[in-house]
Amino acid sequence: MSDVLTPALTPALTMAGRSIRLSRRNIDALITSMMLPLMLMVVFIYFFGGAIDTGTTYVTYVVPGILVLCAAFGASTTAVNVSEDMKGGIIDRFRSLDIGGTSILAGHVAASTIRNLVSTAVVLAVAFLIGFRPSASPAAWLAAGAILIIFLVAISWLSAAVGLLARTPEAAGGFTFFMSFLPYPSSAFVRIDTMPSWLHGFSEHQPVTPLIESLRGLLLGQPVGSAPWTALAWCGGILAVAVALSGALFKVRTA
């Protein structure tokens, strides 16, 4: 079995290592991916938190939403990295070395997941400093971490597909705006029942709402109901579509 897996895994791991090294050189992007969620957390907690009634301390309510915002924003930058590779011509060199499109994209996704786990850990550490006090059991922490990682992988693959679809890195960058906006019409920062009634349907049934509710319930030791299964279903659907779409788009772009 290992002899079968090694030829497929080695190029992907090599591409992941390359993407991580490129990330270390792009300090501006790393700082932005960490500072934006941190700044939003500080703004919402200290500027708006006193005016928002969530039935609990606001820092306790908002941190799970900030974690998802951090993950979504960071994973979406994969679109720019993939688009830059396609524009720069490096893909032709990789293909001449018999490195397939799946390995190249998987390397971007793996590096994105690692990068954003580090960013999420930084955001969580700052959240602890400003008063976030979860009551999760070790099993709940593991479940929350697993759900977040699956979300990161799914969005990173979707972002890779967007990077293949976009013709320029600037156009691919628009995906980061979309993913940064998506947590706002959800339960990330305020309760959905406080929103206009016409927005309830979208807010309750969009992908990040069950994800946020799952993380909030698991980290705070509250009942989660079917939210984790709904979140995993969303992630599985996004991942399946994104992987298939990425494969098709890569063939089209490199034909």
Rank of each mutant, 00 (worst) to 15 (best):
R191F: 12
L117I: 15
V82P: 02
A161R: 01
L105A: 02
V123R: 04
A144N: 05
V153L: 00
Y184G: 07
L152D: 07
I147N: 11
A125P: 09
V153E: 04
H108D: 08
S156G: 11
A166F: 03
W157K: 04
K87W: 13
F178C: 10
A143R: 01
F178A: 08
S197G: 07
P169T: 01
A160M: 04
R115S: 08
T176C: 02
F94L: 06
R93Q: 13
R93H: 10
I130W: 10
V208W: 03
S76A: 13
N81D: 14
P185K: 08
T168S: 12
A146Q: 05
P196T: 14
G88P: 05
N116D: 14
L129P: 07
P169S: 04
A79S: 00
L164Y: 06
S186T: 09
M179I: 06
R115L: 08
S119N: 13
L97C: 11
S103G: 05
Q206A: 12
S112G: 15
E170H: 05
D92F: 14
A154E: 13
A171P: 00
V80I: 12
S187T: 10
S186D: 09
S135K: 14
I192S: 11
I91Y: 03
E213K: 11
G89E: 07
C70K: 03
G89N: 02
P207C: 00
T209W: 03
F189V: 11
F178T: 12
S96G: 14
V190Q: 06
F202Q: 11
E204Q: 08
L164M: 06
D98R: 15
L142P: 10
P210Y: 05
H108A: 01
W141G: 08
S186Y: 04
L105R: 00
R167M: 02
T113N: 09
A172Q: 01
R115G: 02
S197N: 09
A160P: 02
E213T: 14
A188M: 04
E213C: 15
P210M: 08
T120Q: 14
P134C: 12
A143Q: 11
L165I: 14
S186G: 05
I130T: 12
G88T: 13
A71Y: 06
V208H: 05
L165V: 04
L117T: 13
W141N: 09
A79N: 00
T113Q: 10
I149D: 10
P169Q: 01
V82H: 00
H200D: 12
I147W: 07
E170K: 04
A75H: 00
A111R: 03
L148P: 04
I90W: 14
I99T: 13
F181A: 15
V123F: 09
V118M: 09
G88F: 02
S103E: 00
V109P: 05
S103V: 08
S119T: 10
F73K: 03
F177I: 09
L97A: 13
A110Q: 05
V118Y: 03
P134V: 02
P138Y: 05
L148I: 11
S197K: 12
D98P: 00
